[in-house]
């Protein structure tokens, strides 16, 4: 794709977003909805910018980000580890496969009350929930990528003298990286969503808690601010992951 087409694509993509904001503005400025229900976009964004410089808001973002990263990192470590092990060893596979089959479609939020009871209302329960939710897509795509590695890559490495137990790290893991990163991207979006929800259901800080607090007092403007913030955070994190991806996958053919 050349640069010109790319620019026109981006322009095209901006249209619906601009349109949505225009409709939003229109509804509130023609008085179809009272400000208490739908504050105009200008008000919401200026509130967002103003909040960004307050330390209390920065604190909320920081605690959300901390839980998000902690949970996501645990999910990546466990997911990649278990996924590789399941692809490499038939014994591990026989155990992991049925367990994953049962746990993957289980709505993890339903476990949240149990996590609250067991781990308390602090960081731990939320981090565990994020990790539990982000784990499966990462595990599954690692497993998928690792079991799809071209047999002849493995043979080439073995013929060059790579011992069997090093094959996993020298060939299977790097060859599965594209698939692992796809899983991580899904896992990251999930982490954003889940951390926010967990904070809404029970928390004393974080973006999700901000929304609940605003909802209790019917502050519509303050309800929009955390939602837009999590959307922007997701966008930024996704962009960072995309950058990492294009660096790590510079050798791989495009998909």
């Amino acid at each position: 794709m050349n640069a010109r087409a790319l620019t026109s694509d981006i322009l095209l993509g901006v249209i619906p977003i601009a349109l949505a904001i225009a409709v939003w503005q229109g509804i509130s400025s023609f008085g179809y909805a009272p400000v208490t229900l739908l504050p105009p976009p200008g008000m919401v964004f200026s509130r967002l910018v103003q909040q960004l410089f307050t330390s209390s808001f920065q604190h909320e973002i920081a605690s959300t980000l901390f839980r998000l990263f902690a949970g996501f990192s645990i999910a990546v470590i466990l997911g990649v580890g278990i996924g590789l092990a399941a692809a490499a060893s038939p014994a591990v596979n026989a155990v992991v496969r049925p367990i994953v089959r049962v746990l993957a479609p289980l709505p993890k939020v339903a476990l949240y009350p149990a996590l609250l009871l067991l781990l308390g209302f602090g960081h731990e329960s939320k981090i565990t929930l994020v990790a539990a939710d982000a784990l499966f897509p990462i595990l599954l795509s690692t497993y998928y990528g690792a079991s799809m590695v071209e047999q002849k890559l493995i043979w080439s490495a073995m013929a060059a003298g790579t011992p069997r137990r090093q094959i996993l790290f020298k060939v299977v893991l790097p060859a599965a990286v594209p698939s692992i990163l796809t899983g991580c991207r899904i896992g990251l979006v999930i982490s954003c969503i889940v951390v926010f929800l967990a904070e809404m259901i029970s928390s004393t800080d974080g973006l999700g808690h901000m929304l609940v607090k605003a909802a209790r007092t019917f502050q519509a403007v303050d309800m929009f601010v955390p939602l837009i913030t999590i959307s922007l955070l997701g966008l930024i994190l996704n962009g960072l992951l995309q950058g990492l991806r294009s660096y790590l996958l510079r050798g791989f053919p495009e998909v």
């Binding site: 002849k152 043979w155 050798g251």
Partner: peptide, 13 residues
């Protein structure tokens, strides 16, 4: 014994 495959099987990374 060194193999050379039709599919090249180069390490893409």
């Amino acid at each position: 014994r060194g193999p050379v495959f039709q599919e090249f099987a180069l390490f893409p990374w």
